[in-house]
Amino acid sequence: MSFCDARGFDAFHHNERRHRVVHHLTHLYGEPARHPIDYTDFCWGNDTFAPGGPNPAPGPTVWTTFGRFLREPVGLIHWAGTETADETSGTMNGAILSGQRAAAEIAARFNSGRV
């Protein structure tokens, strides 16, 4: 999986986008990357509901005002997902880190007897 900057990518035809992505992946990972099993892309910059990417930047004060509600537990439910990550939000790494955070919160809750 890779992300490309919409400003320099979305305007190209699908075949040209595929060519460019495969070319760069081949440069990074060698000849096996030249023959992907499958290829799909999505032009985030053209999406009506998420312009600019899968993790668009919220407006001023949105994160500091409402961000805590993305991960605040509700009863026994704890939230995890890339959007709740402290670091690298919007990435697979952010998703993993948020899962580890939620697991630690749950473990602390069990260990304290607050279940």
Rank of each mutant, 00 (worst) to 15 (best):
Y29K: 01
S98K: 08
T61I: 00
D5Q: 10
R7D: 15
N55L: 04
H78A: 10
G99W: 08
A11H: 14
I37K: 13
F9R: 01
G52D: 11
A80S: 08
I37A: 14
A57T: 06
G81T: 03
R17P: 08
L76M: 11
M1L: 07
G113A: 15
L28P: 03
G67Y: 01
F69G: 00
L70M: 04
Y29E: 04
L25C: 13
G53W: 10
H19W: 01
Q100Y: 09
N111D: 13
F110G: 06
G8V: 08
G8A: 07
A6M: 15
F12T: 00
A33L: 00
A33P: 02
V74E: 09
V62Q: 00
N55K: 03
N46D: 14
M92E: 02
R7M: 10
V115E: 13
F49Y: 13
Y29G: 02
W63H: 07
A6G: 04
P32C: 11
A108H: 14
N55F: 10
F110I: 15
D86M: 02
R7Y: 10
V22T: 02
P51R: 09
F12R: 00
A57R: 05
H35T: 09
T40I: 15
F9P: 02
T61A: 02
A11N: 10
S112E: 11
P56Q: 02
G94R: 03
F42Q: 06
G53A: 13
L76P: 13
E87P: 00
G52F: 10
T40D: 13
F110T: 12
C43Y: 01
F9V: 04
T88I: 02
N15D: 15
E31H: 07
R71F: 04
G113F: 15
R68K: 07
G45M: 11
W79L: 15
D86P: 03
R34Q: 13
N15T: 14
D41V: 12
H14G: 07
D10G: 05
H27I: 05
F12A: 12
S2C: 09
I77M: 08
S89D: 03
G75S: 12
T40P: 00
Y39N: 11
S98Q: 10
T64M: 01
A50I: 08
R7G: 15
A85F: 01
G52H: 10
R101S: 12
D38L: 06
C4W: 06
G8R: 05
N93D: 07
P51K: 11
H78C: 07
G52L: 14
R68N: 09
H13L: 09
D86R: 04
I77W: 06
P56Y: 03
R20S: 00
H19P: 01
L70P: 00
T40R: 14
L97D: 01
F3W: 10
N93K: 04
G75D: 06
P51C: 12
H23S: 08
L70D: 06
H27A: 14
S112C: 09
